[in-house]
Design a protein around this nucleic acid. Structure first.
Lengths: 195, 195, 195, 195
DNA sequence: TATGAATGAGTTTTCATTCAT
DNA sequence: AATGAATGAAAACTCATTCAT
């Protein structure tokens, strides 16, 4: 097993641990045990616990967000594009719901870990700007109200997913994720639509 | 200075520390130093670190959420009620934006602090059920589409605020909080409205 | 026992350890055990192992060098002053011989511990400049050869003690310390004397 | 590159590391990196870290002391022999001054490395006994005072070089090495001379 | 009420050495 | 001969909490 494969194995094992115990309660020992290696073995691949956590976040973002291909589809209406986007990833969202605790964990550490901060920001801004494009297109095409603020709605569409998944953590039995998020997001899109 | 004032002083000092270092990196010693008391002094007022953190959360919720008086105003239309609600607390939201990091921090620790979990849940569900009432009223009064899922929209309206304030943490210079949240929420309300 | 007394106790215990095991082989645990406190107790008084070692060096220098009162005695001849100086501290030198390993240990670490370096330098230069004064006096008074380099001889007189005590470490059964050093130093003084 | 050349290369690299970081702070990894080989490669040539350090010391002693040919020159006076000896190796001493830190480092570790101890002792005693011979000769020939203790003066002459080079480590800008040592040593020789 | 020295189990990290390839 | 991933015992250090004063 080469060095890179081993790194991936350690990271995957670490994610299991983090999902079960959370960032705050996860010990280096837990990662070591889960990896099947010895302490020194893990430290051979990661210089410190922080280094390992950053590796996990990178791995995590690559794994779960890379798949979202936001491609502009000029032939379709803006409305249709948003509709497809919001519904297409339902299964992925469901999957992501499992990781929301982990995501929140990372988020809560990010102000104190500049590299986290940066990775999160990049990911967020890429998404946001693509949504803004679609909404702008809709305004041009008179599908959406001219008074629409594309940045606000893009942030709102993204936020509604984060916000509802947080609600899922707080009150799981009252929240049907991702359906509540999709429904709310569609209401938001309808709210800017010229009918 | 009486016992209660002393408690408040400790809590305020602790909030400063938490905002600066985050929950994960804040040590009992930090709270002690910030409070100006001695270790024993702080432990006299709070039995444990967890106890102090819960005190902070309580203090925080009292200070910032107590003011939100969600009273049903039967004379107004449901739309008007939501509109007023979303706009009324703009300044408070702005204030809350500063604490979003702390909120997220508490949230990320809540699975391991059952008392947190419970407080968060109670606060959330109270809010949520009141929004559901207003939306149901709107449906009854034919203001809102009969196909509307009140639970989903209520979760969406709340989520959009949490979600956009999270975006504020991630990418502060792109997010105009709380305006983006208000605008998105209003779009969502418009999206379920019968025009 | 107040904080300062406790510090001294820890330092004394640490010196015992260092004499027995040397700097390189002494573990924080050894200092902890010798101190009679717990790990945390020692760390309460010293922030790190390095901090403790620096404390030991300070304590050591204060204890063993502070006593050497090099006072110029203008009534005596320079020769007499040096003679008395070299012989007066015989018992102390004998005592110091026991610490030579420790001294060498500290010395060998000093290039990498700036605070060590600085303390050593200060001590050394104070001594050296006082010897230089006495020798200069002797030259003025025609006791010593005018060609004498006071800085060189001062360094030589000090060096002979360090050098012979090092020899004591290397080859203890061949070296009679401090007598060899005193005898050599006296020969050196005689070598610059106008007979 | 054959095995012996490879050994030398490793040793030279190790000396660089030791001069920069000191014995205490030098890790096997540092030697490995500096050597340009891999861990296994270095371990192929040296069984252990101690083995490598001993190799360095041997290399060092061979390189720098082997050249000192202390040969009794019966035709010359004892004084002349000592004078020539002390002055002859000035350039070598200057060179050695650069390594004094390393020498001290080895010395401080020697009590825990018996093989070091032994090498040091042998080297020292060989030197010392040769100086004793010359001084004894001088006494026999009435060049030196009959009251002279040859062992003491021999130790003193050697010690003055070690001692002044230590002073060089402590207070480099005040010490002119090896001149101060040579001057002091010559004063010592003059101090036992019958004029 | 308040102090701050002390506790000690728990955590991260180090590093000489081994060994399969 | 050489590689470098892996080992694991041992080291340094942390920190919530206690308790004598």
């Amino acid at each position: 097993m080469n060095s890179d494969e081993r790194r991936q194995k350690i990271l995957n094992a670490a994610i299991e641990v983090l999902l079960e115990k959370g960032v705050a309660a996860s010990r280096m020992n837990d990662f070591v045990e889960a990896s099947g290696l010895s302490k020194g073995g893990v430290y051979h691949h990661f210089d410190s616990k922080e280094d390992l956590l950053i590796g996990v976040l990178e791995h995590f973002l690559n794994e779960h967000f890379a798949m979202i291909q936001l491609e502009l589809e000029p032939d379709r209406s803006a409305y249709e594009q948003l509709d497809r986007l919001l519904h297409a990833h339902e299964s992925m969202m469901l999957e992501l719901g499992k990781y929301i605790q982990l995501f929140i964990d990372f988020l809560s550490h990010s102000p104190f870990l500049p590299r986290f901060q940066e990775m999160m920001r990049k990911q967020y801004e890429m998404f946001h700007s693509q949504l803004v494009c679609i909404i702008r297109l809709g305004i041009q095409r008179k599908e959406f109200l001219p008074s629409t603020n594309p940045e606000a709605i893009a942030a709102g569409l993204m936020g509604v997913f984060d916000g509802v998944s947080i609600a899922l953590m707080i009150s799981p039995e009252k929240i049907d994720f991702p359906n509540f998020a999709i429904e709310s997001a569609m209401a938001m899109v309808n709210g800017i639509r010229i009918s």
